[in-house]
Structure formats: structure tokens, C-alpha cells
Design a protein around this nucleic acid. Structure first.
Lengths: 268, 268
DNA sequence: GCAAAAGTGTTATGTCTACACCCATGA
DNA sequence: TCATGGGTGTAGACATAACACTTTTGC
């Protein structure tokens, strides 16, 4: 079979070039399913997935991939024509999150770049993967501006995930491992919580991420220590609860950064 | 000024695409300058740089960038024509190291992807950065197959580095920070050492990377512990030295991986 | 009073650091 | 005998984990 001559498009180069995309692993925690009695002993870490639709009527059949499958939100990085600026990789990730899931991520960090030939059946596509932390309360699953379908899926052990498109399962796995490592020595857990939270909430976040129960008394001591260092501020108390009211705290990012510069080392 | 019409090349696409490169931060340690009396108290971590030459006579003047400047070794990822496979990102990194510096890296790991518009004056170039550890004894600085000039530069504090092309200084800085973090909880230091090494050599590697002196007695204890766990094997002794002979050790990668699977946690 | 969860006290255990000290070797 | 560096012992500081116990609230 003779290969057909490719059509001449507007953008032409001396050497072949790959497409470059960004894909985002968005983590959240749903407090609604996690307040006791909870289905799992340590809360519900969840990830946002998008159901791939018919990408566009203009896309020829043979160029569609994984239609109907679930995938990480993401898309092509905008590269400007000629000498204009285009967008940075991080900006592309933010844009795709807004477009596909209506999400504004407070925490976004690069994870890894996946570029094996063959990872995308449509051709050579190199994907820069990011992971994001959001307060999923604020982002109830909803479709983006186009006809895509967004849904939160639980990452609790034993909860089944749908098969993912491309190599997105590998990306998700790496992101989860990275998050589990990161949460131990950097205060990223707060980005999953509302501005005001209790020791209980914070512990739940850690249990959800690390997927193991933590001793509430020792955890309480850690919070007290952070309070002493001025990194957590008391901003009120719970009301009308059938137990001793919890203190409400706020994470003081500025105080943390100052302390970090002065050699303070966040742990667990 | 009216923009000139771009020439029609063979590879054309519907949307503009970026070039994708790999760049490698290659770390080594030179034992020759580090054996006492040493110029610095903690040895010499060094990095391999390439002097950019005239890239090719065929490259038009306005497309050359940073000619004569020092840069990290790297180059374009090969993307195959049509539906062939091309090379993986890691393979591209290995290939560039071989071509530009004649180096076979034992340890190579992805660092980060740099893709800000404007980072390369020639257009939109996205670079996947890797860092590598090599036994620099085995790789005396020498030019690669083409006319490029390769040189080891010291990273000891206060040693001046030449100005680097593109954003390579930012890449180098991130790589150094990553290496310093990694070396504390994963046994990567051994990839900088010859197969047989002494406690002294190993400590020097750690001092060079962390850029601070370590207590030789406590360090000795760490080595003994690794020996007890079967991760270091005694393979001989020094001869004809003006002091008590050091034991020679070999790192047993297989034993380490087995231990790691069983929950062993490497530290410092 | 009961249930629920916050928070404090305490103890055993382990780890890290600094340093004193002894050992082995070649010159 | 000296210089050089390997290796062991050890005491204090500090961190961690486990768990008993007290406190505070709504019902």
C-alpha cells in the first residue's frame, strides 16, 4: 500500500515536529462523603476525569482517539504563529482546566513529561503533565464550555476507576505517588481545604492522601505546634455540634514562607 | 516592515507546532582534585558543558543562537516522518550525550520541562531537561563527533561558571537542588563512584553534593549499617597507603532493590 | 449521664550529634 | 614515634509512637 501524500497545511517545517499537550491530574477531597460515618476509614481523595466526546465535527474520523473514554483534562499548548509569544506550559494547563472543567486551581505543579512514541495513536504527541489541588466543594462536577462531561472519581483503595485513555493511568499513578511524597514535607494539604478548617478536617486530608489512619492525639499536637509557630491562626470555633467544639484555623501562607526562609522545616 | 512569507518545507501541519529538545545536566566528581590537600574542604562536584559552535554551515545566520557560548549538552528529539516510531525522550537524551560528549550515562532521570515562550530566540522551543550522573574519571572532557568542545566545570561554591546559553542556568540550578534532595533518601551517590570505592570516597561524594562537611565517624557507622544489611559488599583493601588501609566496597544494586521492596528505607 | 471528639501527660523507644578514644598502617 | 585516617563507645538532645486520662460540648 502506497502512503498517501499528506495535505499541505499552513505551517510547514524543515523537520517533523511533535504536537505538545498538557494534561492535568486534579485532586480534590469531598467532605460530604467523608464525614462520619464514612465509607472508608480515611476519607475520599478523588480525581477529576473528563469523558472524551466527539472532538469536533471537523476532525476526520481516523484522527479521533478514545472517543467516549475517560481521560485527564488537557489539550494542546498554544504555539503562536510566527514570532508572537504563545502561552507558557503552566498557562496552558490553567487554561485547559478552566475550559474543560471550569476550574481555577490554587496549586499547580509540573509532574513529568510523557513522550514515548506510540502513546497517542494519532501521531507523535508529547504531553507535559501537571497535578493540581483544588477545593472540590467549590468545583462540583460539571461540564465545561464545550460538550465535555466532567466527573469526580474516588481514589480510595478498592474503588474502581474506569479505563483511562492514552497512558493517563500511568500519569495518574505517578501523580498520586508524588502527592503522597510531597505532603510529608511541604504544606500542600491546605490547598485541598476551605479557608477555615478544623484539626479534624486537616487530619482527614492527610489520611485520605496517605491512605492510612493517623493518631488523633499526636496529630493534634502537630497542629498545636504549627499554631505556636504562627503558621496556623485560630479564627473561631464550631457551633452546635454534639461534642466539644473544634477550633477553626486558617493557614497563614505568608507566615509559613517567612518561617521556611528562616530554616523552618515542615514535616508531616 | 512586512513579514516575509515562510518557505514551504516538507512537513506541514494545520496548527503551528513547537520544536522539542532535550537538555542534560551531567554531574561528575573529579577525584584528582579532591584528594587531600583539596582546594575546597568538600571536594569537587562538576558539570559538563558544551561550547556551542557554528551549528552547521547550512543553518542561516539569523537562525544561529548563542554561538560560542557554553551550554548544557542537548538537541532536538527525533520525530519520525509519518507513522514510524521516532525515539523516546530518554533515548534522545542518551543519544545526545553520546553524540556531543561521548558519554554513556548510568543514571539518567527527567528533571523538568521548560517551555516558556521566548526562552529560545529562534522560536518556540520546548526543552525536556534531564540530569545524569557519571563517573567523570571515565569521561575525560573531549569533543564529540562533531566539532563541539566539551569541558568539566566545577560547581564548588565560589567557583565561577561561564554565562550559559538560553535558560540553562535555571535548569542547572534546579538540577543541583534536585540532586541534593535526592541524594538524602535514594542511593544515587554510587553512580558517581568507580565500582570499588572506600568509605572515604563515598563521604567525599556526599560532601561534594551537599556542599558541607560530614562527621567521618558517624558516616563510618552508616556504611557499617549498609554493610550489615548486605547492600554494601567488602571486596578488598587498599594497599601501600600511609595510614590504616581502607576497606573497598561495592554497591549491590540487586540487594538494595530487594531490601527496598521489603520496606528498607535508604537515608543519608 | 452519655457520646463524641479535642486536647494534655507520660513513658518507652529510637535516632542524631558531638566527641573521646583506640586501632592499623607506612614512613 | 608520628601522621593519617578507620572504626567503636557513649552520653545528651531530641523525636516518635502508643496510650491513659481530662475537658468540653449537645442531647
Amino acid at each position: 500500500m502506497k502512503p498517501t501524500e499528506p495535505p499541505i497545511y499552513k505551517y510547514s517545517y524543515k523537520f517533523p515536529r511533535p504536537s505538545v499537550t498538557v494534561d492535568c491530574v486534579v485532586f480534590g477531597i469531598d467532605f460530604r462523603v467523608s464525614t462520619p460515618p464514612r465509607p472508608t476509614p480515611y476519607g475520599e481523595l478523588q480525581v477529576l476525569l473528563i469523558q472524551r466526546g466527539v472532538e469536533s465535527e471537523a476532525v476526520p474520523e481516523e484522527e479521533r482517539a478514545f472517543v467516549g473514554a475517560w481521560a485527564l483534562p488537557g489539550g494542546f499548548v498554544e504555539v503562536s504563529d510566527g514570532f508572537g509569544q504563545g502561552e507558557s506550559l503552566e498557562a496552558a494547563a490553567h487554561r485547559e482546566l478552566a475550559e474543560e472543567a471550569g476550574i481555577k486551581a490554587d496549586y499547580l505543579e509540573q509532574l513529568n513529561t510523557f513522550g514515548d512514541p506510540g502513546r497517542d495513536p494519532r501521531g507523535r504527541v508529547i504531553s507535559v503533565a501537571y497535578y493540581a489541588l483544588v477545593r472540590s466543594m467549590d468545583h462540583v462536577a460539571k461540564a465545561g464550555s464545550d460538550a465535555k462531561h466532567a466527573e469526580w472519581y474516588s481514589l480510595a483503595p478498592r474503588m474502581p476507576l474506569p479505563a483511562l485513555a492514552f497512558d493517563h493511568w500511568a500519569i495518574l499513578e505517578m501523580a498520586l505517588r508524588r502527592l503522597q511524597a510531597k505532603v510529608r514535607y511541604e504544606p500542600v494539604g491546605f490547598d485541598l481545604l476551605p479557608a477555615k478548617f478544623t484539626t479534624f478536617d486537616l487530619r482527614m486530608v492527610y489520611e485520605a492522601i496517605l491512605q492510612q489512619p493517623l493518631e488523633h492525639r499526636n496529630f493534634s499536637r502537630i497542629v498545636q505546634r504549627l499554631k505556636g509557630d504562627g503558621i496556623l491562626l485560630t479564627v473561631g470555633q464550631e457551633r452546635n455540634v454534639p461534642h466539644r467544639p473544634r477550633n477553626l484555623y486558617r493557614f497563614d501562607k505568608r507566615a509559613y514562607k517567612k518561617a521556611a526562609r528562616e530554616g523552618f522545616h515542615f514535616e508531616l
